[in-house]
Amino acid sequence: MPRNRDRDEEGRARNARPRDGLGRPLPYDAAGVERQPEGIERSPADTVAEAQRLLNDGKPFHAHEVFEDAWKSGPAREEGLWRGLAQLAVGVTHAARGNTTGAASLLRRGADNIEPFAPEASYGIDVAGLCGWARALAGDIDAGRQPASAAAMAPDLRAANPIE
């Protein structure tokens, strides 16, 4: 018997299933974490502030969605910045979920994508500091060391420091 799948008029998945704070699907009857609305156009300052709040709250998956909105709605010349920041947030998500290989890879890829923006100090983001933080966290993860939670891994986007 075919399963009743939650799809829109064009057949795309609606992702109506509740999710936990790290974006993992929960049973349909579970109480999940409120989803981050998608497709919101924010100013760069609002994007950074909202993403920082979500990172601090231990919701890096949700922060990635905020960065993804900026990546999709912003100027093409900034795509690498916002995509790289989204990759850093997904790297933290994977680390918190226990996917160490994916976490380290995404942290390094995100750092590589944002690194060209370091000389500009785009929107007050500490790009050089974030690159150092991401590579240090990836190294710690490779060595079997990582903070206990997503919130403990959260960088300060405006003054990133490697975790201790």
Score class of each variant (00 low, 15 high):
46 D>C: 03
57 D>K: 07
93 T>K: 10
162 P>N: 11
142 D>F: 01
31 A>H: 03
39 G>M: 02
25 P>S: 11
125 I>K: 01
39 G>R: 04
31 A>M: 00
63 A>Q: 08
6 D>W: 09
126 D>F: 06
15 N>I: 00
144 G>M: 07
82 W>L: 02
47 T>H: 04
60 P>C: 09
35 R>I: 03
9 E>I: 12
22 L>R: 08
103 A>R: 05
145 R>Y: 06
39 G>W: 02
136 A>C: 04
135 R>H: 10
117 F>E: 02
128 A>F: 01
39 G>E: 04
162 P>L: 08
81 L>P: 05
81 L>Q: 06
9 E>K: 10
122 S>N: 03
82 W>T: 05
147 P>K: 11
115 E>T: 14
136 A>V: 11
143 A>H: 09
72 K>P: 00
126 D>E: 07
162 P>K: 10
60 P>K: 08
3 R>S: 13
56 N>C: 00
3 R>L: 14
112 D>K: 10
95 A>N: 05
61 F>N: 14
9 E>T: 12
146 Q>N: 01
158 R>Q: 15
2 P>H: 08
6 D>K: 05
30 A>F: 05
35 R>S: 12
48 V>R: 07
34 E>S: 13
32 G>S: 06
108 R>N: 13
91 G>I: 04
64 H>E: 14
66 V>H: 05
51 A>I: 06
79 E>R: 13
102 G>E: 03
49 A>W: 04
131 C>I: 10
28 Y>N: 14
45 A>W: 00
103 A>S: 15
3 R>D: 13
20 D>R: 05
152 A>S: 11
28 Y>D: 15
49 A>N: 12
63 A>P: 07
95 A>H: 06
155 P>Y: 10
128 A>D: 13
113 N>L: 14
105 S>V: 09
127 V>S: 04
161 N>R: 15
11 G>K: 04
141 I>D: 07
121 A>W: 01
79 E>A: 15
118 A>Q: 00
142 D>R: 10
119 P>D: 00
65 E>Q: 11
116 P>M: 01
38 E>S: 08
137 L>H: 09
32 G>V: 06
141 I>E: 07
8 D>F: 05
4 N>M: 11
22 L>W: 05
151 A>G: 09
106 L>G: 13
6 D>V: 02
53 R>E: 12
124 G>H: 08
31 A>T: 14
105 S>A: 12
30 A>H: 11
18 P>T: 13
103 A>G: 11
53 R>W: 00
17 R>M: 11
125 I>C: 04
36 Q>I: 03
53 R>M: 04
40 I>H: 01
27 P>V: 05
3 R>G: 06
131 C>V: 15
31 A>K: 07
143 A>G: 14
70 A>H: 00
25 P>D: 12
92 V>E: 11
125 I>P: 02
87 Q>P: 02
